[in-house]
């Protein structure tokens, strides 16, 4: 796996102005060409609409997330990409007044059906948040928390903790201080701990909500490397503000934008274009996508 120089992320979302499509950011994720649409999607959204009270946050999103692929959701602030992500494991249930219409399927099952337990959904679809949020417990207890609360049958918790920490490329840094508080770790280590904590429950899908936006470029590069390793075992959906990051790690990219309502002026997020990352960044079919990735707005 090749590493991007850490400095590349330091620019944040500001890409240089350029008339030509950005061919410099070519996905390094896939080696063989992928079909245009994921052939065997793990998750799909169908006519997904989200409301917060009267506010229509997301309009008619149809997406499919392929097995062992990384899908990036990009777009300007307020375009609804995080809202869509939080629908994928019913974290929007926790927002008072949130309402979801349409379908989100996981292996063909609508997770918003009446007889679906959101807690069961979340054991299969884990989530890593924008700001690292380790529990104020020991490193060990952070990892063991998920298996304990979900009642996972575990032969050896010690082995599971080691496996999860190795999986998140954190083991060597923390193996001598497993009993120390996770709050003492650096931001990047905390975020890798949160990833380790998520994979300890052996989920199927990992959702990441701007996982690197609170981290420095070096820590960001490590998380990106980790994502590329994790996709062998997991299906990953990532929301990012950083277009270079989307280009570096993702197989497919969905571009969202916000459309103001003519009467109310409320901005409703919508999906503009969904395609292979290479296509989105080199030959987008929608003018708005091209404007955004070339830095003309957003």
């Amino acid at each position: 796996m090749s590493k991007m120089p850490a400095e590349a992320t330091a620019n944040g979302t500001h890409t240089p102005h350029s008339e030509a499509p950005m061919t410099t950011f070519v996905s390094q994720a896939g080696h063989e060409p992928l079909p245009k649409l994921p052939p065997d999607p793990v998750m799909e959204t169908k006519a997904l609409n989200v409301f917060y009270g009267d506010f229509h946050a997301v309009h008619d999103v149809d997406l499919a997330f392929g097995r062992n692929e990384i899908t990036a959701l990009i777009g300007p602030s307020g375009c609804g990409k995080s809202t869509v992500l939080r629908c994928l494991n019913r974290m929007n249930d926790l927002v008072p007044g949130a309402r979801v219409e349409g379908e989100v399927t996981y292996h063909g099952q609508n997770i918003y059906a009446k007889d679906v337990d959101p807690i069961a959904v979340r054991t299969h679809i884990g989530m890593v948040f924008q700001k690292p949020n380790p529990f104020p417990k020991s490193i060990y207890d952070n990892i063991a928390y998920g298996p304990r609360v979900t009642g996972m049958k575990v032969d050896s918790m010690d082995d599971l903790v080691e496996e999860a920490l190795r999986g998140a490329a954190l083991w060597d840094e923390v193996k001598d201080k497993l009993k120390q508080s996770a709050i003492g770790l650096s931001g990047g280590q905390q975020q890798r701990l949160c990833i380790a904590r998520t994979i300890a429950t052996k989920p199927d899908v990992i959702l990441m909500d701007e996982p690197c936006s609170a981290l420095d470029p070096i820590a960001t590069a490590r998380i990106e490397d980790l994502m590329l390793e994790l996709k062998d075992d997991y299906t990953i959906v990532i929301v990012t503000h950083n277009m270079q990051q989307a280009a570096r790690v993702s197989d497919r990219t969905a571009f969202f934008t916000a459309k103001p309502d003519k009467t109310t002026g409320n901005r409703t997020g919508q999906l503009v274009e969904y395609d292979l990352t290479n296509t989105i960044f080199s030959n987008p079919s929608d003018q708005r996508t091209e404007d955004y990735i070339s830095g003309r707005f957003g």
Binding site: M91, L94, T123, M127, F129, F135, P136, Y145, R197
Partner: peptide
């Protein structure tokens, strides 16, 4: 107690009681 801790716990498949007793109360 920060909302982020509750979300972290719920996102791991914990229920509300577990989140309250094992994460929020100790914090």
């Amino acid at each position: 107690v920060p909302q982020a801790l509750r979300q972290g716990s719920l996102a791991m498949g914990a229920n509300r009681m577990q989140t309250t007793l094992r994460v929020v109360l100790p914090a």
